[in-house]
Design a protein around this nucleic acid. Sequence first.
DNA 1: TATGAATGAGTATTCATTCAT
DNA 2: GATGAATGAATACTCATTCAT
Lengths: 195, 195, 195, 195
Amino acid sequence: MEKQQKAQKSQKRQTIMDAAYRCFLRNGVQKTSIDEIVQEANVAKGTFYLYFKDKADLSQQLFITTSCHVILQAFRALTPEERADYDRMIVGFADNIFDYFIANQPVLLLLGRNFVWPRLESLSQAADAELAQVRDSLLRNPHHPENDRETNFKYLYSIVVLCGEVGYSSIVHQQPDTIENMKPVLYEIIRRIVH
Amino acid sequence: MEKQQKAQKSQKRQTIMDAAYRCFLRNGVQKTSIDEIVQEANVAKGTFYLYFKDKADLSQQLFITTSCHVILQAFRALTPEERADYDRMIVGFADNIFDYFIANQPVLLLLGRNFVWPRLESLSQAADAELAQVRDSLLRNPHHPENDRETNFKYLYSIVVLCGEVGYSSIVHQQPDTIENMKPVLYEIIRRIVH
Amino acid sequence: MEKQQKAQKSQKRQTIMDAAYRCFLRNGVQKTSIDEIVQEANVAKGTFYLYFKDKADLSQQLFITTSCHVILQAFRALTPEERADYDRMIVGFADNIFDYFIANQPVLLLLGRNFVWPRLESLSQAADAELAQVRDSLLRNPHHPENDRETNFKYLYSIVVLCGEVGYSSIVHQQPDTIENMKPVLYEIIRRIVH
Amino acid sequence: MEKQQKAQKSQKRQTIMDAAYRCFLRNGVQKTSIDEIVQEANVAKGTFYLYFKDKADLSQQLFITTSCHVILQAFRALTPEERADYDRMIVGFADNIFDYFIANQPVLLLLGRNFVWPRLESLSQAADAELAQVRDSLLRNPHHPENDRETNFKYLYSIVVLCGEVGYSSIVHQQPDTIENMKPVLYEIIRRIVH
DNA sequence: TATGAATGAGTATTCATTCAT
DNA sequence: GATGAATGAATACTCATTCAT
């Protein structure tokens, strides 16, 4: 019975997050009020505060799960050939991220510039496991076997941040150029970084 | 007389921007109200709206001038030896940016993650000229003489964005590590990018 | 318990309308701010927006209920003799409206020129029923039994509008003459219209 | 020279009124600010206050001149046959007013419910003279030679007010019915009033 | 006369948060 | 846990009016 209650609790919580996600996609994080979220979720206003401190609290968690989702999608979309070769894999990974954002601009707008490598996740055990696997694959840089995982993670982190930022500004504002014109430069940068 | 009036006009505008800058440094952009700004500037509320559409309008302009300022400072602080060698110059430039942010964390907080390469500026003619010179120096990458200016700018833009983002997260949140621990990685990345 | 809550809810709404009515009578609709209304009603500002979209929304509803009130008063004040004869009834009705406005000029000022025949009301069931009865009595014009209700209503509507407008301008501005001097003309007009 | 100055003065005044007229037609009286008017008129803000006390002052004058204009148009559009017979003339006059408002709804919206018989005018000598003539024609009711001018004017005033109000509500809000369905009723009313 | 920068009181509206039920 | 009516501080923005030039 305790389990069931816990399940119900997380269910209500999830209901709110899902509703918030839809609202954020529709109107942006800034312009979405808690009022809207609870209305979309069909729960009372007070219920929101049972599960979240405030909107920033909820947003942050949503940024993490959404970043996770994008990263997993981008990795899953790699072909076997790309996975076989580290250089092609990492460039293909970046490419898939851009393609995801191009195809899902509302998600990009929701994330704003908060696309990050998810550190502490608690989505689901399955997702956590898969994400760990993705990280392992991307950290195993054959060009620099001397590097420890921490160091390689810093390189990876920089690459992801770069993709997030330049992706955002080029897709949304065509700054400093369109994403299509930025791609070759970014891929060359990534290749140079991992080499 | 007309000149004087015009001078006075731009002066009022500058007064407001200066006041806003001080407020933003003190309390952050988000937590600063227009009320506070006009009080700090000793002008009437209506005067604000004579020169700016809203707070976002003013913020944006402040981000640009502040980014300019940081870039100019970082370039001016380069030693003659650093200027003589492109690789050392660009790494020294990044280093100076980090040092500036470390020494002036409120400025970093003000910029938030809005540190950008200033495209269209209208600070003062002198600053514009110097900034153009800075750009020219940084774009003249001897390792890739085949690249046109546009292409080189994209590389430069990516470097600046990377420094801004990783600088912000590492200095403010020690994410993914302290700035001191990130520096070697970032400098290595920059060196690889320009090579 | 639920009933009590519902009652309390509509009560709050009514509290605000009553307060607004007093404010409007005191200072006019235009010069009354929402601030004043909520202060008079002893409710929080946000509560106002829980029940009304804005001041115009509230005003409109107040115009309707006030118009209703005036019409009911004017009809109730008819003597049995007046009620017995249609011509005397309709002229007496108009006369009572003028007398009400003369005796309650603030109400006239509140209504401004928004005295209308209330179409869709939802004051109270009792008031609605009585109003329907008033309408029936006034629509039953014995001089024109051939007219349908719709047509007779158009005549009645015109009479009410005429009384509202000319009443307003003659009582408030003595335009084109005092109400006492306008009365004979208006009554003659009404008599001619219904004949 | 004095004359010329006076001419220039009235010219500037007229410029502002014309600009206000255009603004009012575009956005309504309520939503037009003095700022907009002076901008449309290409004069300085202070200039407005040299000629008008405030917006209400200007509006009132505009209501009068516009009402005049409508009345003159409606009278000019009468056919010789209509002019020959008083009953046909007054009904035709009302008809022309409605047609004008139907064809120029923005003017109707501008006037709001401020369509009145112009008492004190100061448009131009020519217009004033013509208006006096219109009044004379309409006041000469052959069915009631015993009435003095004052009395007849009260009847005429009531007719004009009625047309203004019912015209407004039926054209703009189809209340209580469309103007086309109201016309027969109104014409019958007018006929009865003048008889 | 004419200007238009500057004013600042005035006002509407939002929205996170609480708490009695 | 869940509700949702009530709160009221916070804040943006307008706009009529002035006055030094």
